[in-house]
Simulated scan of single mutants.
Amino acid sequence: MTPVSMPDILEHLQRLGMSGYEAKAYVALVAAGRPVNGYEVAKRSGVPRSTVYETLGKLVARGAAYEVRGAADATDYLPLPPAALLDRMRREFDGSVAVLQTALPAVVAAPEGHLIHNLKDGEAMLARAEDVIAGARRDLFLSIWPQELRRLDARVREAAGRGAEVSVMSFGKVAEAPGGDLPGSVHEHRYSAPEAVLQDLGYRLIVVVGDRREAVVGGFGTDGSAWGVYTADPAVALMAAEYVRQDIALQILAERVGAAELDRLFATDPGLLRLLGRGRA
């Protein structure tokens, strides 16, 4: 496992609800290994002395630390052990999620229109794609390159485990993961050589569609740039799903009749040749 740095630990504690000062003070208490007073916590953590007792009071109030009597009746502090703290946070988080699953839908107003928004970079696009996959219950369509599939692999397996029918078109070999082959109907795009597609388009296209009701569509440039959109418009999501389905159908057809025969068919029909376009190898 990759070692986790101190800034990472502090960041994750803040994600779970602690302030920056609270996270620093709690880590200082854990690292001390014995009861320490506020002055020592400030010295160890970098929390200003003017706010360290207020910060420690907040930790005590949330049950992450305890006051104990030190020398000369001074107040020292002990942390709640990390395992106990994380277990408590997990219970509180799960409890809040359970309540909100019922409460939030009850206050949601009917949308005036179908949601659509831009995704500013590759990380935002992959995070939104994870959301789409997590919401899929019936079917899931992906047109994707191995570089992006590695990030989404675990989420795709979870969707398949929930019973979603998974269909994947991969522009390149799908590497076998520790969990084995990717579940569902998985096809490697050979009729359109990935190198030719990349040269023709200039970017790696990604399409992720969940239950034909929401989709992420975007591209990853060879220069590290990325662009994309998320939409909950069912018409757009349906078209995106059809794009993946038709591409899979063409790949299956090429496998059945042979790429050479399919090329001959396209070459003898100007209409099909025009639709095929460039990028075929």
Rank of each mutant, 00 (worst) to 15 (best):
R256T: 11
P35S: 08
M89Y: 04
F266P: 01
D263F: 04
A226W: 00
A177P: 07
A281S: 14
R274S: 06
E195K: 15
I252V: 10
S225K: 09
A232V: 01
A193K: 15
L10H: 08
L16M: 13
V41W: 05
R88P: 06
A129R: 00
A129D: 01
P79V: 01
M89R: 15
A226C: 10
E188N: 08
D181P: 15
E67P: 08
N118K: 14
R245E: 02
L119T: 05
R49S: 14
A254R: 08
L115C: 12
G113C: 15
R155Q: 10
W145E: 11
N37K: 10
A260Y: 03
A25D: 03
R15G: 15
E158G: 00
F93Q: 08
L119S: 05
P194W: 11
V52L: 09
V186G: 02
L142C: 07
E261C: 12
R91I: 03
A84K: 05
M125E: 07
E148D: 15
E165F: 10
D73E: 04
Y21S: 11
A64F: 10
L152D: 00
D73K: 05
V99M: 14
R44P: 00
L100Q: 15
A215G: 09
P79S: 10
R256F: 04
A215M: 08
V166W: 02
F266R: 08
E11I: 04
L265P: 00
S185P: 03
D181S: 14
V108T: 12
A32M: 04
L262V: 03
G202Y: 02
E242C: 09
E165I: 10
R128M: 09
L262A: 04
A215F: 00
V174K: 09
G202W: 01
G122H: 10
E22K: 03
G179H: 01
H187L: 07
Q246A: 11
D8A: 15
V4N: 09
S170I: 02
R264H: 08
R264Q: 01
V4L: 12
L205W: 06
G202S: 06
G46E: 04
D247Q: 14
A215S: 13
V209H: 09
L276Q: 12
S5N: 11
A25F: 02
Q246T: 06
V156C: 03
L10W: 01
A232R: 11
V208G: 01
L272A: 13
A235E: 08
K58G: 14
G219I: 05
L59Q: 04
F220L: 11
R151D: 06
A31L: 14
A98M: 08
F220R: 06
E112F: 07
L86A: 07
R245G: 02
G221W: 02
G224Y: 07
S5P: 12
E255L: 06
E11P: 00
A103L: 14
D181Q: 11
P111F: 06
E67I: 07
D263K: 03
M239D: 11
L250V: 06
R162Y: 03
Q199I: 07
A32F: 05
I248N: 03
K58R: 11
D76K: 09
G210C: 01
A83H: 11
L126Q: 05
K173M: 11
L265F: 06
P82D: 13
A31R: 15
L56Y: 06
Q246N: 13
R155D: 10
Q14Y: 05
E22S: 14
G210R: 00
L238I: 01
L275C: 08
V174L: 02
A64I: 03
K24Y: 00
G202I: 05
F171Y: 10
I206R: 06
